[in-house]
C-alpha cells in the first residue's frame, strides 16, 4: 500500500457546554453539575490512501461531522494529530488555524454554505486569488472553466446564490472547493438536502470529477445507499468512536460489529415486488446522550449480543478477518454471518 495521504492519529475532540447562570450558582454552592463535556470524537485514528474514498457513516451524534471538520482544518483536535502528506493541516498555538489549501470541503446545505451577498464568481475566485493559484486578471476565465467543469454556464458567475436551485448551488459549492486544486475533498453529506432526482446528478458529477482529477475523498453520510455507491472503504462510527472499518463491499456483505449489522438491517430497502417481505428489523432502544455515554462498549445497552465484559471494558479496534472492529465478541460473531 502506498503512503497514506491523510493521517488522523488518535484524534479526540471535546465540546464543553457552558453552564447557564442557574447551574453556575448551583455549582458554587456545591450542588450543581460540573462542566458538561461532550466527547464528540474519541481517540480516532484513520488513514486515507491517495485516490481512495473513505466514507464515515453513523447516526446523529456519532461524531462523523465533527471528525470531518477536524480533518478539514475547521476544528483543532484536543488531542492527536492530523497530517496531509506528512504536513500538519492546522497550525499549533493558542489560536490554531488551517495552514494547508490541499484539503477542501463541500458542505451539506448549499443554501447556507454560499455567502448570500457575494456574487458566485467572486465566491469561487477569492480563495484561488488569495493563495496565488490564479492571477486576478485571469480569474474570470479560471472561474468560467471550473463552472463549466461542474456543468454550469459561465454567466452564472455574475449572479447571486438566491437565483439558483439547491442542485445548482451545490454545483457552485463543488466548483469553489475544486478551484483551490485540493488533493483531498471532504464531502459532508453533499446530497442529503437535495431531491432524489437531483441527488443522482450531483453524485454522478462527484464521481466523474473524482476520477478525472484523481481526487482523494472523505465522504460523510448517513445514507448507506449513497455510501455503498461511492466509497472504497467505510468507517462506521457510534458515539464518537469508530466501531468498524473495512472495504465497503466486505463490510456491507459481511458486517462484523453488531451495530453495523443492526444499521444495515434498519435501512428500508426498495421492495420493488411490493412484497414488503423483507421486514425491517429495527435496533431496540435509543441513541444514548453523548453527554453521558454508557460505560464499556457504548453500544452495549442496545446490543443483543452484549455480555458482562461489554458493560465494563471498552473494546479496542482490532483486526478481524482483514478488517478492524471494536467488539469483544467479533471473532465469535464473524462465524455466525
Amino acid at each position: 500500500m502506498s503512503e497514506p495521504l491523510l493521517v488522523l492519529d488518535g484524534v479526540t475532540k471535546r465540546f464543553a457546554r457552558p453552564l447557564n447562570t442557574g447551574e453556575r450558582i448551583a455549582s458554587w454552592i456545591g450542588a450543581g453539575p460540573g462542566p458538561r463535556v461532550v466527547r464528540a470524537v474519541e481517540q480516532v485514528s484513520l488513514t486515507i490512501a491517495p485516490h481512495e474514498t473513505l466514507a464515515l457513516v453513523g447516526e446523529s451524534g456519532c461524531g462523523k461531522s465533527t471528525l470531518g471538520r477536524v480533518a478539514a482544518g475547521i476544528y483543532a483536535p484536543d488531542q492527536g494529530r492530523v497530517t496531509l502528506a506528512g504536513a500538519p493541516v492546522m497550525s499549533t498555538g493558542r489560536r490554531p488555524h488551517k495552514i494547508t489549501t490541499r484539503v477542501q470541503t463541500v458542505f451539506q446545505d448549499p443554501f447556507a454554505s454560499l455567502d448570500p451577498r457575494m456574487r458566485v464568481g467572486t465566491t469561487i475566485a477569492e480563495g484561488p486569488i488569495a493563495h496565488n493559484l490564479v492571477e486576478r486578471a485571469d480569474s474570470t476565465r479560471y472561474v468560467a472553466s471550473w463552472l463549466e467543469r461542474v456543468g454550469l454556464p459561465a454567466d452564472v458567475a455574475t449572479r447571486f446564490p438566491h437565483q439558483f436551485s439547491g442542485g445548482q448551488r451545490q454545483r457552485i459549492a463543488i466548483a469553489r472547493a475544486l478551484a483551490m486544486q485540493p488533493d483531498l475533498l471532504i464531502c459532508d453529506e453533499p446530497v442529503a438536502s437535495l431531491d432524489v432526482s437531483i441527488q443522482a446528478q450531483v453524485l454522478n458529477l462527484l464521481l466523474e470529477l473524482r476520477r478525472d482529477l484523481g481526487l482523494t475523498c472523505l465522504f460523510i453520510s448517513h445514507d448507506l445507499g449513497v455510501v455503498r455507491h461511492v466509497s472504497d472503504r467505510v468507517a462506521i462510527m457510534y458515539l464518537g468512536r469508530v466501531v468498524e472499518l473495512g472495504t465497503t463491499a466486505e463490510t456491507f456483505a459481511r458486517p462484523i460489529h453488531p451495530y453495523t449489522r443492526a444499521l444495515l438491517d434498519s435501512v428500508p430497502r426498495l421492495a420493488r415486488d411490493g412484497a414488503r417481505g423483507r421486514e425491517i428489523k429495527p435496533i431496540a432502544g435509543e441513541l444514548p446522550s453523548p453527554l453521558a455515554p454508557p460505560p464499556g462498549c457504548h453500544f452495549n445497552p442496545r446490543c443483543v449480543h452484549a455480555i458482562d465484559r461489554c458493560r465494563s471494558e471498552a473494546p479496542e479496534l482490532l483486526p478481524v478477518a482483514g478488517r478492524i472492529a471494536a467488539c469483544h465478541r467479533a471473532e465469535e460473531l464473524l462465524a455466525t454471518v
Partner: peptide
C-alpha cells in the same frame, strides 16, 4: 456555514470579517 467555508479555504480572519461577516 459560509463563514466556516471561507475560514476553511483558508482565508485570513481579517478577509473573512471584512468581506463576509460585515456585509
Amino acid at each position: 456555514d459560509y463563514v466556516e467555508a471561507a475560514l476553511s479555504t483558508p482565508l485570513p480572519a481579517r478577509t473573512v470579517i471584512l468581506r463576509h461577516i460585515v456585509p
